[in-house]
Amino acid sequence: MLELRLVQGSLLKKVVDAIRDLVNDASFDCSATGFSLQAMDSSHVALVALLLRSEGFDHYRCDRNISMGMNLNNMAKMLRCAGNDDIITFKGDDGSDTVSFMFESPTQDKISDFEMKLMDIDSERLGIPEAKYQAIVRMPSTEFARICKDLGSIGDTVVISVTKEGVKFSTRGDIGSANIVCRQNTDVDKPEQATTVEMNDPVSLTFALRYMNSFTKATPLSNQVTISLSSELPVVVEYKIAEMGYVRFYLAPKIEE
């Protein structure tokens, strides 16, 4: 028996919208720790890891570890039927081939029940080793989304370089080239507007912008994004989910042949 209740139901919508561009079907794992997911995109270039900790839910009951294969577009279709202020309760049963979503309006005058079919998914789990990163950039998530969108209209790949000057995003395409430098800036009215660049060693890596742009679908989840870089490692683009956990995207770099 599994029962999760989230008063801030819109959060679940945002989580599904954040990852469904990258992954079609995924296996959600439920344990005493929380509700989690790990999935690769179909070309095995990127990986998404989600964690919603049990303490973050208003009610969390998970009698035993359970994995549920779900189609994210179908999940989005169901969740779209919830009002933005609705309380969402997610229920599952051992051995059942369906799960259910219950949406309650804040005034309790409308209660909806949706049942969704589960899928059989052969998911391969990867071990993500702990790593010490050469550079960690924190910046407003909207700013990062803007940069990826702008560069994506010019080139296919972005070179992210971190030096003591700041972080530079560069691209090159048929029509020309672009460089955007963001300097550390902590002199801001609100902490979420800050950009910080923590650098142990200078680093420069190349990534496909198509994936970066897909990661920015998580922007509504968090005001800030954290980009962790090390040569020889996939970049980590992390959106923290307040009080609950995170969505982390890992993207393998491109190298010169």
Binding site: H44, V45, G127
Partner: peptide, 14 residues
């Protein structure tokens, strides 16, 4: 020409 690496080259299957 740039070569796109796969995520599985970095993270082992468990």
């Amino acid at each position: 020409k740039r070569l796109q690496l796969n995520i599985t080259e970095f993270f082992p299957s468990t």
